[in-house]
Simulated assay, not measured.
Amino acid sequence: MKTYHIKSIERGSADYGWLKANYMFSFANYYNPNQMGFGSLRVLNDDVIQGKTGFSEHPHQNMEIITVPIAGALRHRDSMGNEGVIKSGEVQVMSAGTGVYHSEFNDIADVTNISQIWVIPNKNNVEPRYDQISFSFDANSWQQIVSPNPDDEGSWIHANAWFHHGVFDKGELTAYQFNDKENGVFIFLIEGEIEVNGEKIEKRDGFGVHDTEGFDIKIMEDSRILLMEVPL
């Protein structure tokens, strides 16, 4: 088993007043040659957006964009005609494909915290698509929220990738088995403290695992985990 640990304090950051951003990987004005992504996982941003502010309309192309609200809510509009609110307990998936414009505004909550993730697709110039689903916070189990298969649980993207969300109680032990042994898994610990392969992972750390078919996670404190299996 090989691992790759990015501690929360090792992330890039930017403070724009209306937006406080933390970058797990190189993004915008933050560049770190040692943090360029994890396989096809190119972006993992942890954004705190103040009320009555947001991202004005901007374009994307040939990227799978997954947004997981951690707290608060965000209003989405796009050039495909979609408009709605995403909140904690939901995941939004947008395949940018040949090109799409969208905006994201926090006009509902005092403060909204989202995790926005970009995955490099396995095919370019697909027809843009949008999806939004809800998931549960049932304790001590994984819930699949993204996969490559439209007929599977959760939403789907144009990539050989599986995302799982889980909420676990202190003292639990949970296991994860890879769907594809050529993939790697990147853990984003939203809350709590866990241990993988004898290494302590703390709140908002990122932790990659590869060259193994599975691994165990010890729950050291009540935890909320986002787990992303992606091609390397």
Rank of each mutant, 00 (worst) to 15 (best):
N183Y: 13
D205L: 06
G184R: 03
K123D: 12
K181V: 13
E202L: 11
N149F: 13
E172Y: 00
F178C: 01
Q144F: 01
N140W: 05
T212K: 04
E172Q: 14
D152L: 04
F163P: 03
K200Y: 07
G166S: 11
V167H: 07
S141H: 09
R204P: 00
N125Q: 10
P148F: 13
E195P: 07
V209R: 08
I194R: 03
S136K: 08
Q132K: 15
V209I: 15
N124Y: 14
R129T: 11
I187F: 03
S155A: 15
A175G: 05
F163N: 01
L173F: 02
E172N: 11
E193Q: 15
I133P: 02
A175N: 13
V167I: 14
G206A: 05
D138V: 13
A139H: 08
F188C: 04
D151V: 05
I145T: 09
D138W: 05
G166Y: 08
F178L: 15
A175E: 14
G206T: 04
N125V: 03
E182A: 06
G206P: 05
E202N: 13
F207C: 04
I187A: 10
L173Q: 14
Q143Y: 06
E191I: 05
G171I: 01
Q144G: 07
D211P: 01
L189G: 11
W162E: 02
K181S: 08
I133Q: 12
I190Q: 07
V126F: 06
E153Q: 14
H158N: 13
Q132P: 00
Q132R: 14
P128Y: 09
V146N: 03
V209Q: 02
E182L: 09
Y130R: 11
N179V: 01
I145N: 03
N124M: 14
G154R: 08
D138I: 14
S155I: 07
H210V: 01
D205G: 06
V146C: 02
T212M: 10
Q143R: 13
D180S: 03
V196I: 15
I133M: 13
Y130D: 07
I194Q: 01
W156Q: 07
E199N: 11
E199G: 01
P128C: 10
Y130L: 10
S141Q: 15
E153F: 08
A175H: 12
I157V: 14
Q132M: 10
H210I: 00
V185G: 09
K200L: 15
S155N: 06
D180G: 01
A139Y: 10
Y130A: 04
S141N: 09
W142N: 11
K170A: 14
P128Q: 06
K170P: 03
D152R: 09
I157Q: 03
E199Q: 15
G171L: 00
S147H: 00
F168E: 07
F186A: 10
D211F: 05
G166R: 07
V126R: 02
N124D: 14
N125T: 04
G198F: 04
D169R: 09
G184V: 09
Y176H: 13
E127Y: 06
N149L: 12
N160D: 15
N125M: 12
W142Q: 12
V196T: 10
V126L: 12
Q143G: 11
Q144A: 03
G208Y: 00
P148M: 10
V146T: 03
N122P: 02
V209H: 05
W162I: 11
F186D: 12
Y176D: 08
I133G: 05
E153N: 12
N179M: 04
